[in-house]
Design a binder for these strands. Structure first.
Length: 946
RNA sequence: GGGCGCUUAGCUCAGUUGGUUAGAGCGCUACCUUCACACGGUAGAAGUCACAGGUUCGAGUCCUGUAGCGCCCACCA
């Protein structure tokens, strides 16, 4: 074995080997209890970031653990075509060539995108391999591959035919850079310090008014100086955050109960800058307390205004183009960018003295989640899914517990959104994605949805249109004529998430019934980030309930966000991102995985910096060295083969080791069942490092270097077996290191008599297929003498040894100086037991240059204390007697305080009456212990002349 | 405006149904390069569990309120 562990070569070697040997591949034919997981498909444009590392490590831990438990495990991998994101990437590449997508045309552009996918789409998937993700790569899917596209078409047509997909003319979120509609979820609200501009709208004078007498009142308002010079003009002041939209105003609204404006309702205003006449309307929606209480109504650019427009039959004037520049409707401002137009409009209003005031106003502004451009609410004709009917069963599924969230609090978030769900805008004005399968007949104007491109119009085929007879084909069933130029398909594509929400069943072959789908659906655990609950999790539950008649998964584990050590979200623009591949390069994939798991508690955000990954690296080194140590001894032991446990040869520390291993196995299993991956990792870490390495391996040295061959063989067998089980426990977290050691230690194929089951040939080769360790049976524990007393003895012994070492440190005695100390054990049984083990104790202490004498206090001079009782240390001029007396006095006071508390507790009638017997018993024992300790301390204190 | 989370050792955080003297990692102090490991070992210091009330025999843990920080949702122009 090499002195140093080389993760790089090891990780590459084993990943290739696992894949080549089909260790990740799932097969229905093998039967058993399924454990299925679908990966949250990363964007095909993605590169591995810390969020992926966290998400996929969690999944891989669960998946590997379940696999070892003997479940029939499938981890379905794949990528998302990420409509807008991918199109952006390809457009950027085109731009470098000085081209635009329009130069290529739709078909060529799509072909170009597929080429890009073919060349770069595998990046993230290969990075997942570096992380160690044990996905069933043979099943890898892509949201635009043939099968998934079929599922999308199937779902669209079903919803369309049921009337759950409809086309609507309404205000949607428009990204002027991507030039497409977005769903509400795709518009991210960012708190922004904006302004509330107060603009004065002149009131048009009635006939006979003095202003009207000037002829054209509009002209007068167009020239405020003139207006002022001639007459007093009445104004209605409105407040707005988006002044440029005023060009599209078709009314101003006030609350009908607002006395300030009562007289103006029904009057006409003259819209500044455009001189359009617009009415003052009354609408309950208006909040009298906000702004001026008068609101400009722009039905084409604001959802509320749109609704008001509907209520009051107002026209809608769209003043913007799809790229965010002002449209022809904007008159003099046409062609200007919307923000430039805003500046100009403000300036112009100011020049005409129509800007009453400007108040700073913080508000949330929508940004495109793909390109961060400010989203424009805009009137548009789009496709929508009616969500309420889909939401109802999905709400019930969570309420009834068919789907459970971890942590549970996310269920509230889910309910909140689902109960107030709004229709989902699914059409996108881009090219990369699933084309909306809606067709229109140019002859009869019939519109319908079809899974495959139709060649003729069904309405016309029904006989309403005379048609040519077809040779050899029954016209009622199939039409083989070339596509009719009369039939046109909707140009838009579907929202990326329209394919993602089918992922848990489309990846298993739906809409076709098949064994995989039947066996693996519903999946078990879905692991994802909180920001994706609405985009994906909720919609998957809806789709599962709707199309499969069952939930898509039983558990949803929502993990936290990975942040930098200052708590900021990692982002490219901040430059505070850690690259998982850097961490893997510097510390190893195992270190990345283990550290992440160890520092992340269930569902909480995690703060990371580079140094945090030392934990995992150090742990790996520790284990590597422990293995080297054992290997060194097994190599020395010629022809070493493990022997079965001989109860006659077992000593306390052996029993204690088996005991703590048992506890660790139980704890790890239970924690993993409840998604407590941190606690499970801690239990493994603590067992291997503290119990196995620090205590047992040190303890075992005396036997390994001793002369008793039978005992040495027993100890070696025991420790290698316990180490094998430790590797199994650790394998889900550190797959590479454990696999390497599994082979280095010769566990692959070796027969371990203490192991819980004989390996079958197919499972003997890899830890990944080794069975998850089971706690020992009662019969074994009985036969081996694993009793509670064992733990008590070993605990006593450890404290005793610790006390000896502490003496040296406390009195600052050189390591070279031999110390014999004496212990007066508290209870006789322990003392007797430890005396019986005196020889091994002596050996154990030899390296510390210590020697202990049990229960002979009278012979020695007083020294210090440990929990077991009194420890005496020969003075030999090593101790400052006065200082020691003071120390003991302080100790005495502390113990007396504890005793007082306990006494008070036990004297309390309510406590005795109500506390559980176990707690009372505990307190009684403690009372006894404290009383004895105090008696001893008092004696000691006297000895020191106190 | 609603909802959620956090506040425990110098730092980052655990603490699972309320129950011995509240834990870990890092950092810190002292000693040790002893034949697996200095990415190590041994021993140690360090916390009025944000604040104020309440329930209880007993509260870091349950309830109410306050403060600070953070996140999510929301059409107040």
């Amino acid at each position: 074995m090499d002195k140093h562990y080389d993760p790089k070569s090891v990780e590459e070697k084993w990943y290739a080997w696992w894949e080549a040997n089909g260790h990740f591949h799932a097969d229905v034919a093998q039967g058993g209890v399924p454990y299925s997981v679908v990966i949250p498909p990363p964007n095909v444009t993605g590169i591995l970031h810390m969020g992926h590392a966290l998400n996929n490590t969690i999944q891989d831990v669960l998946v590997r653990w379940r696999r070892m438990q003997g479940r029939n495990v499938v981890w379905m991998p794949g990528t998302d075509h990420a409509g807008i994101a991918t199109q952006n990437v390809v457009e950027k590449a085109l731009k470098k060539e000085g081209k635009h997508r329009d130069d290529l045309g739709r078909e060529a552009f799509i072909a170009r995108t597929w080429e890009w996918k073919k060349e770069y789409g595998g990046t993230i998937v290969n990075q997942l391999r570096k992380l160690g993700a044990s996905c069933d790569w043979a099943r890898e899917r892509f949201t635009m591959d043939e099968g998934l596209s079929e599922a999308v078409a199937e779902v669209f047509c079903r919803l369309y035919d049921e009337g759950l997909i409809y086309r609507g003319h309404r205000i949607i979120n428009w990204c002027p850079r991507c030039k497409t509609a977005l769903s509400d979820e795709e518009s991210e609200h960012v708190d922004t310090q904006g302004n509330l501009w107060h603009i004065k709208y002149p009131v048009k004078a009635a006939h006979g008014d003095s202003v009207a007498a000037h002829g054209n009142p509009v002209a007068a308002y167009g020239n405020p100086v003139a207006a002022h010079g001639v007459d007093a003009v009445q104004f209605l002041t409105v407040a707005t955050t988006r002044p440029e939209t005023m060009l599209g105003d078709t009314a101003v609204a006030v609350n009908p109960n607002d006395e300030r404006y009562a007289s103006l309702i029904g009057k006409t205003l003259v819209l500044p800058l455009v001189n359009r006449e617009i009415p003052v309307i009354a609408d309950e929606y208006i909040d009298m307390a906000f702004g001026t209480g008068a609101v400009k109504v722009t039905p084409a650019h604001d959802p509320n205004d749109f609704e008001m427009g509907q209520r009051h039959s107002l026209p809608s004037i769209d003043v913007m183009n799809d790229d965010g520049t002002m449209s022809a409707e904007a008159g003099a401002y046409a062609g200007l960018d919307r923000f430039e137009a805003r500046k100009r409009i403000i300036a112009d209003l100011e020049a005409q003295d129509l800007l009453a005031k400007v108040d700073p106003h913080p508000h949330a502004v929508g940004h495109c989640y793909r390109c961060d451009t400010v989203v424009e609410p805009r009137l548009s004709k789009q496709w929508f899914v009616k969500m309420k009917p889909l939401a109802a069963p999905a709400i019930e599924a969570v309420r009834s517990g068919k789907v459970a969230f971890t942590p549970k609090r996310w269920e509230n978030t889910y309910f909140e959104w689902m109960e107030n769900i709004r229709d989902w805008c699914i059409s996108r004005q881009i090219w990369w994605g699933h084309r909306i399968p809606v067709y229109t007949c140019g002859v009869c104007a019939h519109e319908w949805a079809a899974k495959t491109a139709p060649t003729s119009c069904p309405k016309c085929l029904e006989g309403e249109r005379p048609r040519e007879p077809l040779e050899g084909k029954c016209p009622a069933h199939e039409d083989v004529r070339p596509p009719s130029p009369q039939i046109t398909q909707d140009p838009d594509v579907l929202d990326t998430w329209f394919s993602s929400w089918l992922w848990p069943f489309s990846t298993f072959g739906w809409p076709h019934d098949n064994p995989d789908l039947r066996f693996y659906y519903p999946t078990c655990d879905l692991t994802t980030a909180p920001d994706i609950i609405f985009f994906w999790v909720a919609r998957m539950i809806m789709a599962g309930c709707k199309f499969m008649g069952d939930v898509p998964f039983r558990n949803v584990y929502i993990h936290g966000t990975v942040r930098d050590d200052k708590g900021r979200k990692m982002s490219k623009s901040l430059g505070n991102s850690l690259d998982p591949l850097d961490i893997i390069g510097q510390y190893s994939a195992d270190a990345l995985r283990f550290s992440l798991m160890l520092i992340t508690s269930t569902g909480m955000d995690v703060y990371v910096n580079m140094e945090k990954f030392e934990i995992g690296r150090n742990f790996a080194t520790k284990i590597w060295n422990a293995a080297r140590f054992m290997k060194m001894h097994t190599d020395k032991c010629e022809g070493f083969a493990p022997v079965p446990i001989d109860p006659a040869l077992l000593r306390d520390d052996d029993r204690h080791l088996l005991d703590t291993l048992d506890a660790a196995i139980a704890a790890v299993t239970e924690h993993l069942e409840k998604f407590r991956l941190q606690d499970a990792a801690l239990a493994i870490y603590d067992f291997i490092w503290s119990n196995f390495c620090d205590w047992y391996l040190e303890y075992a040295k005396q036997d390994l270097n001793g002369t008793d061959d039978a005992r040495r063989l027993q100890v070696l067998s025991l420790m290698t077996d316990v180490f094998a089980k430790s590797l199994k426990l650790l394998h889900p977290y550190m797959p590479f290191l454990t696999e390497e050691l599994w082979h280095e230690m010769g566990y692959a194929g070796a027969s371990h008599p203490v192991a819980e089951a004989a390996f079958t040939p197919s499972t003997a080769t890899a830890v990944i297929r080794a069975p998850w360790p089971a706690p020992y049976t009662e019969a074994q524990r009985e036969a081996w003498g694993l009793h509670a007393e064992t733990t008590a003895y070993v605990t006593a012994k450890r404290e005793l040894v610790t006390a000896g070492r502490a003496l040296r440190a406390e009195y600052n005695i050189a390591p070279s100086k031999f110390i014999a100390y004496v212990i007066d054990a508290l209870d006789e049984a322990t003392a007797t037991h430890l005396r019986g083990d005196a020889e091994s104790l002596k050996q154990q202490l030899r390296s510390d240059n210590l020697e202990v004498i049990i229960g002979a206090g009278e012979r020695a001079m007083p020294g210090t204390l440990c929990k077991l009782g009194t420890i005496y240390l020969p003075l030999d001029g090593l101790i400052d007697v006065a200082a020691e007396a003071a120390r003991i006095k302080a100790e005495l006071a502390k113990e007396q305080g504890f005793l007082n508390n306990v006494n008070a507790k036990l004297a309390n009638e309510s406590f005795v009456a109500k506390a559980p017997p176990a707690v009372i018993e505990q307190q009684r024992a403690r009372q006894k212990e404290l009383t004895e300790t105090i008696a001893r301390l008092e004696k000691l204190h006297k000895t020191f002349g106190g």
